[in-house]
Nucleic acid binder design. Structure first.
Lengths: 189, 189, 189, 189
DNA sequence: CATGAATGAGTCTTCATTCAT
DNA sequence: AATGAATGAAGACTCATTCAT
């Protein structure tokens, strides 16, 4: 693993566990086992490093979502698959997800926020297209696909946030089923 | 308005616009038009002040949710009313909502996080009870009420987050309708 | 007890337990059960209050030394009596003695230092005279009485400092005997 | 001279002249001709820096005392040599001695106090052993060596304190002679 | 390429002191 | 005589960033 990757990997971990502001370049350098100067040799600034870490995360999620979108599954199955993937991913990368979806919001450099909002928009776009596709086949209820995609994303974040930060380990299967049921069939009869 | 309230109000604004870490006590003092020392005469620390700001916000939301829960509306109407209230509240207090639901997650003092998680749990509790009540009347689909309440909360946050930070003004009515539809009837036919 | 005395008494205690710099006017006000403003109504400043506390302490010690100097004891007995008094006083007022003799030295306001040095000089003067008296009767060894008085004072401080700060309770009788022996007969045969 | 030493040396001077609390890190940085951050790069905190300064001083004194203890002098000559060294050292390093022996007592961080008490105990231990050695040869009067060592240390501090802070330059030779006489032969005939 | 010592602007926090009541 | 809310100057400490090696 080359220096750049070592740093990126250490940064991801440190940012995840501490949040952007509490994390320090010293912590990252130590975890990456390089000198602090090396951080600046490879990345122009703390924000830039953070942005890179964020990008990597979103890139991966987007990739997986695209895999589902271009799979042979029917549109309604795709939606369910997305939820399943999300729950699994959150469980496995809880603290990383935390910075990916929450940390970004408050007091962050305007530049980063724009990058992040763009990345989230990409994610929502993928889901949105998936929903639109479903609507043309009349398996997805007709509604504003953009709003729906953000609602889905938010719903998943909300539940996961609860379990990410909570003390009690989530019952993955139950969570998947319940979010799935709620989002697919709705709260009301 | 007494000093304490003046500070609290200024703090809310400054924290909302800048996030916890970027906000400084100087900024708050200036906005409140008091000396920095006065901040510390009234609140022991920055975290404590922040916590108080958070508490106030959640207290208000919880109050409004309780009003709905104890209203004469049928349980299914109550759920819809919650969503409506939330959308309206978020539109009107966008940046405040931002710190209330997002800022709290990353790198924040453990103590504050616990306080906040407790407050969010209270909110979820109110919604959860509302849903359970609806289930006994068979107007709310039978499912895990806790998971559902967090999903609802999350869903609302998610959409609002999009519009809070986005450049385009949200079409309030459309948003309400669409989240309402999604959450009540579900995505799929 | 009037307000002034209540403050003086509280100040003595707070300064003794915390030292001049660590002690705060708030602590003193609280201990004295008066408002902070009252402190300033009765004393112009923290230094002034401290100086007053110091003066009281030295005044008392000087008085007791004078009592011994003007007693019917022979000059050699007087010297021993001084040592005894000192040991007893230090044991009973250890933390007060601490500020009286040690705190005063470092980084203290020049004004206070001068006051304190004057007060210590007074003490030394009393002892010095006692020694001179003894020299005229040839019961005290002929030497520079000023140097000797400071040596005595210092010796007593040194031993007491050890026991004041140490964890092990001093064996008062043994300490008195040993300092007495050393100072009266000397270290060497 | 490397940075660390430059800081240590500046700190010694600044602490000596001002006392722990009145001295500021800015003053030290300025005197050392380094940026304030450099202070913290080399020492974790003000207390830590102070502690280090203290340790260095005691280390030197202990070394010199050991030299005397292991010299070829007879035990009684050693005691006298100690006194001479002390007087000389105090004259030459008056303000440093001030913090070494006085500053440490009041309101100082508990940790530092423990370190310092330990260091003073070491010094007393060296002297105590010297006295015990003398007692076995019957040239030192039989008494509690621990109490005696603290008395000696205190006596020397006391006199020196007088001259350190006093306006009149001490007559070194006279002071040495008189303390020597007092401690070796005693006050009384 | 990599290093790590040095930097200094920026923050939180403390606390003696003041003054209107 | 007494109060206590308000003040603001001052100080310890942090940390992203730079640069000579």
């Amino acid at each position: 693993m080359d220096t750049r990757d070592k740093i990126l990997s250490a940064a991801q971990e440190v940012f995840s566990q501490n949040g952007y502001y509490t994390a320090t370049m010293d912590m990252i350098a130590e975890k990456a086992e390089v000198a602090k100067g090396t951080l600046y040799y490879n990345f122009p600034s703390k924000v830039a490093l953070f942005t890179e870490v964020i990008k990597e995360g979103f890139r991966y999620i987007a990739q997986r979502l695209m895999d589902i979108a271009y799979s042979e599954y029917t549109p309604d199955r795709q939606v369910l698959k997305c939820i399943e993937f999300f729950v699994d991913y959150c469980i496995e990368n809880s603290s990383y997800v935390n910075i990916l979806f929450f940390e970004l919001s408050g007091g962050m450099d305007k530049e980063v926020r724009e990058v992040a909002d763009g990345l989230i928009a990409d994610l929502a776009g993928i889901i949105s297209n998936m929903l639109k596709e479903g609507m043309t086949y009349s398996v997805v209820r007709s509604m504003d696909a953009d709003i729906a995609s953000y609602t889905m994303l938010g719903a998943m974040q909300g539940v996961m946030g609860r379990y990410i930060r909570g003390k009690d380990k989530p019952d993955v299967k139950k969570v998947k089923e319940n979010i799935g049921k709620l989002l697919s069939k709705g709260l009301l009869y």
